Simulated assay, not measured.
Amino acid sequence: MQRLSNNLQTIVNELNKFKSTQEASIQNLEVSCTQKLQEMRDQRKKLNAALDAIEKTTLKELDDIRTTLTTSLKKDVDNCRRLKDDLQTLSEAVNGLCYKSTKEIEFIAIRKCKDKIHESESYLKENHVKVQSLMIFQANTDIEQYLSKQTSLGKIVMLKMNPDQTLTVKRTSEYILKIPSDTSQSYQISGICSTPSGQVIVADFHNKKVKLLDQHYNVSSHCNVSGSPRNLCNITSSEVAVIFNNDVQFISVTNGQLVNGRKLSLQHAAIGIAHHQGTLYVTSGTALYQYTLTGLHVKKLYEDAGDYFTGKCICSCFQSKIA
């Protein structure tokens, strides 16, 4: 009976421990939800600020056009008023000279009238083709269409952890990777890796560039590639391999600048790439291939033609094992 009693007490203790853990989890959940709600509101504020900035720019364009057109129209009004007044003055003078002027005065008056009439006719001829300006607003429908396709401000991800483990995000930061030579306003960082010196190299898919970031995450150098880069990986401490289309482009960091090097052309599409101990591993979308650094095809490691493998992280290198 004592043993049974001990077992019962053990279970009661375990239940109490589990109950306390779950109650603490409820409190943590409420705190987490409050934090996420604030992050969502902060994200909304950023979107509002971005839209306000776009609206401000558009309003300035409207104001500039209005100022230009108003200045031009006022100039036309002033010129018409001046010419009309001059002609009216000449008309009155001519009427006063009809019965008492000499030939010389008549000649001068006629000459002035002809000159002023010619000036007025020339002005009207040059300006009569001016069409009444009609402004229209061509809305940037890309913004509306993009937003209409979005279903949320972001994803809520649940992280499962062991009770004794704690995962804490200390801080998050945003950095602008746009540079003047970018041709696309859409940015997709399709690959990222770091150098031993702390520099970061990223692949800009839409702008077909590879960009080098300094320790403050500012773009310090870039180089163009002949396709949209899908992924990249470290080869050495100062060289990376970038894939796009059917090619592998090697890029080195020399004196703080990115420099294009040799390029390998493959017989299949290149989706993902990794390097381990002098060997390149490249995925085509359905297969995993092994290559030497000189571009020699070693073998096909795996293929699944029935499904499309879209992952970019193609291998996990740990203790000389490929997974």
Score class of each variant (00 low, 15 high):
I26P: 05
S133W: 04
S101L: 01
Q199F: 10
L87E: 03
I251R: 11
K60Q: 15
Q22W: 04
N234T: 04
S186C: 05
S20V: 01
T68D: 13
K45D: 15
I273S: 00
T58R: 11
V282G: 10
C113H: 01
R81D: 13
K116M: 12
F107I: 10
T166L: 02
A93T: 13
Y308L: 00
V253G: 14
L62W: 02
L159C: 13
G295S: 03
V210N: 06
S265D: 02
R66G: 01
N48L: 14
M1P: 13
T195P: 11
L62H: 08
V169L: 13
I156Y: 14
E126C: 00
L213V: 01
V157Q: 13
I136N: 05
E39I: 15
N255D: 15
I251C: 09
H216I: 05
G272H: 10
S190K: 07
S226G: 06
K130L: 12
N246T: 15
S226C: 02
T70M: 07
L90W: 11
D204Y: 09
M161P: 03
E106C: 10
E126F: 03
N13F: 15
C315G: 06
P163V: 08
N140V: 03
I192N: 08
Y281R: 08
A274Y: 08
Y146I: 04
T183F: 11
S122K: 07
K263S: 10
N224C: 10
I189Y: 04
K125A: 13
I322P: 03
Q319V: 02
N224K: 15
L167Y: 06
Q35M: 09
I189L: 03
Q319A: 02
L8A: 12
Q27Y: 04
N207D: 14
S252R: 15
Q27C: 00
I314G: 02
